[in-house]
Simulated assay, not measured.
Amino acid sequence: MQKHSLVYFTLLAYLLSWLVWLLLYLPYFGISVLPVLPYHHALGAIGPIAAAFIVTYHFHGKEATKELASRVVKWNVPVKWHILV
């Protein structure tokens, strides 16, 4: 089952992103009960990182998820690149 974790990640990332983005298309079908936020389209970018945490927790457990979270906030970038950006 673990060998399929990449497939699960890919499907879940697309699913989460498109669930957010599909809300943007509802007004075209006459459904306008949900508000559209100014940067609503950018919220779909959360899908892949959310899928990464969900799949990591499901396949590898709590400790691996904590490790992933620490890697997300850990930046090993030289100071010159921070200044440049």
Rank of each mutant, 00 (worst) to 15 (best):
L22W: 12
G61M: 02
G47T: 07
H58E: 04
V55H: 05
V79K: 10
Y8G: 02
L22D: 11
V33G: 01
L15S: 12
P27T: 14
K80D: 12
W75R: 13
V36I: 15
K80Y: 15
W75I: 13
F53M: 15
I46N: 02
F9P: 03
L6Q: 07
V36S: 07
Y28L: 06
Y39C: 00
V36F: 00
A45G: 15
Y39H: 10
A69P: 03
I54G: 00
Y8M: 00
G30C: 07
Y28G: 11
E67N: 12
V77S: 01
T56W: 04
L43P: 04
L15V: 12
L43Q: 03
A64E: 15
V33I: 11
L68F: 05
L23S: 10
E63D: 10
L43M: 08
S5F: 04
L23Q: 06
K74W: 01
T65I: 02
R71G: 09
V20S: 04
K3G: 04
F29D: 07
G47K: 05
V20T: 11
P27H: 11
F9V: 05
Y14W: 04
R71Y: 13
L11N: 07
L12M: 05
L12I: 08
P35Y: 02
F9M: 01
T10W: 05
V20G: 10
I31Y: 08
V55L: 00
W18S: 09
Y8W: 06
I46G: 05
K3H: 08
N76S: 14
F29W: 14
V85M: 01
A42K: 08
K62W: 10
A52V: 10
L6G: 09
S17D: 06
G30H: 09
L11V: 15
A52Y: 04
M1W: 08
S32D: 15
E67T: 15
F29S: 12
F59H: 15
V20W: 08
W81A: 00
L11D: 02
L84R: 15
Y39W: 09
S5E: 12
V20I: 15
K66W: 10
E63W: 02
E63R: 14
I54R: 09
N76D: 14
I54A: 07
W18H: 14
L19R: 08
F53W: 13
L23M: 12
A50E: 03
I46K: 02
T10L: 10
E63A: 12
A52G: 10
A42Y: 14
L12G: 00
W21H: 02
L84M: 12
L68W: 05
A13I: 03
Y14V: 13
H82I: 13
K62R: 13
G47D: 03
M1D: 12
A64R: 11
V36G: 01
P35S: 01
F53Y: 15
L84F: 14
W75C: 08
G44S: 10
K74D: 07
A42Q: 09
H41P: 00
W75F: 09
A51K: 05
L19T: 13
W81F: 14
